[in-house]
Computed example of a mutant assay.
Amino acid sequence: MNMRVYIVISLFSVLLSSCGGGSKKETVTEKTKRTPETEALLVSLKQMPGYGIMFGQHDAPVYGIGWQGDENRSDVKSVCGDYPAVMSFDLGHIELGKENNLDNVSFDRIRREIIAQYNRGGVITISWHVDNPATGGNSWDVSDSTTVASLLFDGMNHVKLLRWLDCVANFMNSLQTEEGVKVPVIFRPWHEHTGSWFWWGEQLCTTADYKALWRLTYDYLCEKGVDNLLYAYSPGVEPGSVDEYLARYPGDDIVDLVGFDCYVYNENDYLRQMTTMLKIVTEVATQHNKAMAVTETGYETIPDSVWWTQTLLPLLTDYPVSYVLVWRNAYNRDNHYYAPYPGHMSEADFVTFYENPRTLFLTDVQSINIYTENK
């Protein structure tokens, strides 16, 4: 296995804000200065392809096949003896004031796992499957094509969105170690917008309104003192060119990482879509000086015993990908898993994938000094 590394953590203190009502401001007058650790993370993400490709999984340490809520566990760790270098979590239902998110994981547990992953030297990314504020439905409720417009300034749900963003800000600001270090996070709002299965999707709002929603989100979180976020722009596989990929791009000043989500539904289509998107996003990342990642991918149930080494890794090798993240291993839904577990048909191949010098797991990234500026 490639070299193991240790992450040096510096200290930075912040005050905790609370979740409450928001003021109606169009923009912040000055961009919030990010913490040194957050700035260092961005530099590390850009440099990471020189070391290899970090492997990540959604909800890796909170449940898996046949278990839920155990401490110090993940299916990935059970297979290869190591945690993913990147862990993803979701804030869906935090806007409703609930104790648990949409996958029934408590926000207290998510907070603890985020801090633990940072203390271990890993990377954290957060998505937000936010409920539909106009209809009361979930993220997939696309029955009202005016939802996004209603959230913008003078819209009937604008104040509601600000209250919901207060809850997000409160959570992000609460991500602090015992020493007061604020944990950097890659935040991925309004993702997969080039499809139309979410209420913020392409056919549900205009280009101008989508960009305005992004900027409102960014500006308001900055106003609330959230200074530990990098922002990821994450379409699906619908774009066929750089111009199409950038059609709803909210701006270089508020985007730090560019990526895409791509799943296997047909193996030939997957190879074609991944190749197309990797070429497009590489060009965008190069032209706009952004970090690059495959922000979601995977093959549900992984029915190919050599998928890791014969499909996924060869696809990524020639591109400057900082990380690739597969989706969750659901404990409460049959045949909904994207990483192997002990006894799975792809277990041996995943170990070979883990041992490849180009793949980076937690112990591999522990000496890259991800959170220090002078590398």
Rank of each mutant, 00 (worst) to 15 (best):
T177Q: 12
D349T: 06
W164Y: 09
R248I: 12
G97E: 12
E179I: 14
V8S: 13
I280L: 04
T282S: 11
V86I: 14
W307N: 10
N228G: 03
M292E: 03
E373D: 15
S10N: 05
V130R: 11
D144F: 07
T363P: 04
Y354N: 09
F260G: 07
V130F: 15
V226R: 02
C80L: 07
T317L: 15
L96E: 14
D219Y: 15
F361G: 03
L161T: 00
G52E: 01
T29L: 11
I110Q: 00
C222A: 11
S150A: 12
M345C: 05
H288M: 06
M277N: 01
T35Q: 03
L312R: 00
L213M: 10
L221K: 03
N132G: 10
A212E: 09
T35I: 04
M345G: 00
G240I: 00
G195I: 09
G121M: 01
K25N: 09
A169M: 02
L45M: 13
V5I: 14
N289D: 13
T311M: 11
A149P: 04
T32K: 09
G121V: 01
E238V: 07
I124G: 00
K375M: 11
R120H: 04
Y341T: 01
E179V: 15
L257D: 00
L360W: 02
V159Q: 08
L11T: 09
E244Q: 14
I302H: 03
R111G: 00
F187N: 11
H191P: 04
Q68V: 12
G298D: 09
A149V: 08
L325T: 08
C167I: 01
L151C: 15
N138V: 11
E244R: 09
T38P: 09
Y270W: 10
S196F: 07
T372M: 14
L165E: 04
